[in-house]
Design a binder for these strands. Structure first.
Length: 422
RNA sequence: GGAGAGAUGCCGGAGUGGUCGAACGGGGCAGUCUCGAAAACUGUUGUACUCUUUAUGGGUACCAAGGGUUCGAAUCCCUUUCUCUCCGCCA
């Protein structure tokens, strides 16, 4: 959520920047300002009403103590009208606040200056590319390899739950566990503290990171207890810092978490969802940082390098994209996507997305720190996948297929305990 | 799931209708002392909104959350959430 301060004080800049995300915000901004003006007027009026009520109440107290019953009774009558007016003002104020909030949450984050213009994924900018394309004797897609080596059973998952809930078996299950442990070790070695959060969150957490109210349909909802299955570890991990004021020496916060992720993915179809490409339940290791504003872009850079280093160790062909305004998420100020090339499907698969949210998330979370003047300031938050498993597995299987079996990259072998899937 | 007790500031903890944004203690911060530190002493110590003559200024709200009673609520009532104790169940 953008801050009112920015909207009010830098109106032109806000409108300008949101154009890069393909939005004409001028009307919305005008609306925000007029609602806020009304809100302020109501607040002022209500406050002075309440002040008067408080004064009278104190007088009544004093009169009672002096035993002046009749004067006290007379004063009581004065307050009736005030009370009624206050009640009405309170209602109107709450209404205005609600309205203001409703409009504010429709405004996406401002893209940073670095964000390239553009509307579609084709306009994203490739910033780096690495890893060698494999030369394959055979080009089976991963879902066929999964069947051939009996390591991932999609049909069995359908029996147990439904489409998009695969069962990993034997070396396939071990590969999952190996990747999770490998990623976590890479992250903790880089200074991230490992946490294991709940896989279900309450409503307040859903609001905190912006899944609610608008993306409600994307989450599985346990209605009896009103809990939501997390779509990403970002939700519980970032919400650790909801309503928190940090001392500057506590920053930066660097956390990593492995969790399964649950996504309803309503409306997906076709080759996009084939095999491991898109699942309802999948494993992901996430990294999250809370930073001082002046350090957040440096931190973003270091997160990108960190993820790149992991992908390199997996010996996969990859590229890093800087997302254009039109392809960025609602909450992001700058996003780098990682894609690995899946040799049999002959397409790039997104395996990580690393973003700086600046203060957009923090404003909604009320995540602040105290600056040198002891004033509270919004912190900056960043997160990224480090990494999401299914598409990494897809690429590993497809790119490393040989007539003898599927080779496991060196870095992973200590974790799998085998060097080939056969 | 049943019965009972409870939730107060950074922490501990007092407060059962007015003088309470909240005693007292600890912690933090600033100062005195010191070459420096410790100790001691003194002062200070939340968040948000808002107004104006933007100031070591005024007002309002906040004692788990939401509602109610009252001229007046941390204090009384209702609902919800959470914690603890006992019983039941259980990896």
């Amino acid at each position: 959520m953008l801050t009112l301060k920015v909207i009010r004080e830098q109106k032109e800049l806000v409108i300008e920047r949101l154009k890069i995300k393909g939005m004409d915000a001028s009307q919305t901004i005008a609306q925000v300002i007029s609602i806020d003006d009304a809100r302020k007027a109501l607040q002022t009026q209500l406050d002075s009403n309440l002040a008067e009520q408080n004064t009278i109440a104190k007088q009544i107290g004093a009169l009672m103590q002096q035993g002046k019953k009749e004067e006290a009774e007379a004063a009581k009558k004065q307050t009736a009208a005030l009370k009624e007016a206050s009640k009405e003002l309170e209602l109107k104020l709450a209404e205005a606040e609600q309205k203001l909030n409703d409009v504010l949450i429709t405004l996406p984050n401002l893209p940073s200056e670095q964000v390239p213009a553009g509307r579609t994924p084709e306009d994203n900018v490739v910033v780096r590319q690495g890893g060698a394309q494999p030369v394959l004797m055979q080009k089976l897609p991963h879902w066929e390899l999964a069947k051939k080596y009996d390591i991932i059973d999609f049909d069995l998952g359908v029996k147990l739950t439904g489409a998009g809930f695969p069962v990993y078996k034997g070396q396939g299950a071990r590969l999952q566990r190996a990747l999770i442990a490998f990623f976590l070790d890479c992250n903790t070695a880089a200074g991230y503290t490992e946490v294991q959060p709940p896989l279900m969150v309450n409503e307040a957490s859903g609001f905190g990171t912006g899944q609610l109210p608008d993306k409600e349909g994307q989450m599985y909802h346990a209605t009896i207890d009103n809990f939501y299955l997390i779509p990403t570890a970002e939700v519980p991990v970032t919400n650790i810092y909801r309503d928190v004021i940090l001392d500057p020496q506590q920053l930066p916060v660097k956390l990593t978490a492995y969790t399964p992720c649950f996504r309803r993915e309503a409306g997906s179809y076709g080759k996009d969802v084939r095999g491991l490409n898109r699942l309802h339940q999948f494993d992901k290791v996430e990294i999250v940082q809370v930073q001082l504003p002046q350090n957040s872009y440096e931190a973003l850079e270091s997160m990108v390098e960190h993820v790149e280093n992991i992908v390199k160790q997996l010996e996969l062909p990859y590229r890093i994209l800087k997302l254009c305004g039109g392809d960025m998420s609602f909450t992001s100020a700058l996003t780098f996507d990682f894609e690995v090339f899946s040799a049999a499907q002959e397409r790039w698969l997104e395996v990580s997305s690393v973003s700086n949210f600046e203060s957009f998330q923090a404003n909604r979370l009320k995540l602040r720190y105290r600056d040198e003047d002891k004033k509270t300031q919004l912190a900056h938050t960043l997160n990224g996948s480090s990494l999401a498993l299914p598409r990494i597995v897809a690429a590993l299987l497809e790119n490393n297929q040989t007539p003898e079996g599927i080779r496991i990259p060196k870095a992973l072998q200590p974790y799998t305990g085998f060097d080939i899937i056969s």
